[in-house]
């Protein structure tokens, strides 16, 4: 090459924009740490989540032995919180994957084929954007019962909508780009265009949609568990621990405090991380 300017890939600028955003880098670090802790839970906790090993110390305040104290039925709160991270992150990630699995093909089909398919998908997306997800989720959970599987089904039933909207928009813009026209003029069929052009060029909104679907699912799980229609005890859930802790709030404030902090910080950091990714990939989307 004969010009002197250093040519840099779009990825380079995306990376630089991301790492310039201190809040999202910090959030990413927290998420990695929490994920590691959740995976290594049995190794780093003194007891399992259901062990009532410390009945004689029930309701004990935080100490060196019990970092976050002991709950009313003698379970180590720190252990329950770390195992709770497994539930929360697990539901978040699995629901987000399910949302991708539903949302990507539907959004891509709507954007690519247009016509009736697009009409149907956009109508469904429209309906979903009007109904309040949490209310319907509460109703569904109370009718069909809570439990991990049902919560994942409910939250992906709502989570795919955002992914489909993002992917549809991206496919619509990529479809109109000249390189797709060029491929069509060369005789390329739909399959070639979707596989070789549309999907590779839609990777970044898919990643962003995936990351942003995680906190939504976590929040839904926590809210349902808070109302008692979510995760079934004794499996720990931060939402449920908050609601249980409310009874003891006046004297044993540590019971609701720690799950609240973890829920707040986790939801906050995943959202900030997702926003940071989105802004890094596409600065023009900022604040949308």
């Amino acid at each position: 090459m004969n010009d002197l300017t250093v040519v840099r890939s779009p990825g380079f600028y995306a990376r630089r924009r991301f790492f310039d955003n201190k809040a999202s880098v910090f959030s990413g670090a927290f998420i990695i740490l929490l994920t590691a802790a959740a995976i290594a839970a049995p190794l780093i906790t003194p007891s399992s989540y259901a062990d009532q090993k410390y009945l004689d110390e029930a309701l004990a305040f935080p100490s060196a032995r019990h970092w976050f104290g002991v709950d009313n039925v003698g379970r180590d709160l720190y252990a329950r919180i770390i195992y709770g991270a497994r539930v929360s992150l697990g539901i978040g990630v699995v629901s987000a994957l399910a949302s991708i699995a539903i949302g990507v093909p539907l959004g891509a089909a709507a954007g690519f084929f247009g016509g009736v398919i697009d009409w149907i998908v956009t109508r469904i997306v429209e309906i979903f954007s009007v109904i309040p997800p949490l209310l319907v989720a509460i109703l569904a959970a109370s009718l069909f019962g809570g439990g991990i599987l049902n919560i994942i089904i409910i939250s992906s039933a709502f989570g795919w909508v955002g992914v489909a909207r993002l992917v549809r928009g991206q496919v619509l813009t990529v479809k109109g780009r000249e390189f797709v026209q060029a491929a069509r003029a060369m005789g390329a069929g739909s399959k070639h265009i979707i596989v070789r052009h549309l999907i590779p060029n839609s990777i970044s909104p898919i990643i962003v949609g995936f990351v942003l679907a995680i906190p939504q699912a976590m929040m839904l799980e926590a809210s349902l568990s808070f109302l008692g229609v979510g995760i079934n005890p004794p499996i720990p859930s931060w939402g449920q621990m908050i609601s249980d802790g409310l009874y003891f709030m006046f004297f044993y404030w540590h019971l609701p405090l720690f799950p609240t902090l973890f829920l707040a910080v986790t939801v906050l950091t995943t959202s900030i991380f997702g926003d940071g990714l989105r802004d890094a990939f596409d600065p023009t989307l900022k604040g949308k």
Binding site: M249, L257, A264, L268
Partner: peptide
């Protein structure tokens, strides 16, 4: 904070 964190978390903080 207000947009991402659920309202009961905020309520609980206010109560505490």
């Amino acid at each position: 904070l207000g947009i991402t964190v659920p309202i009961y978390v905020i309520s609980l903080m206010l109560m505490l």
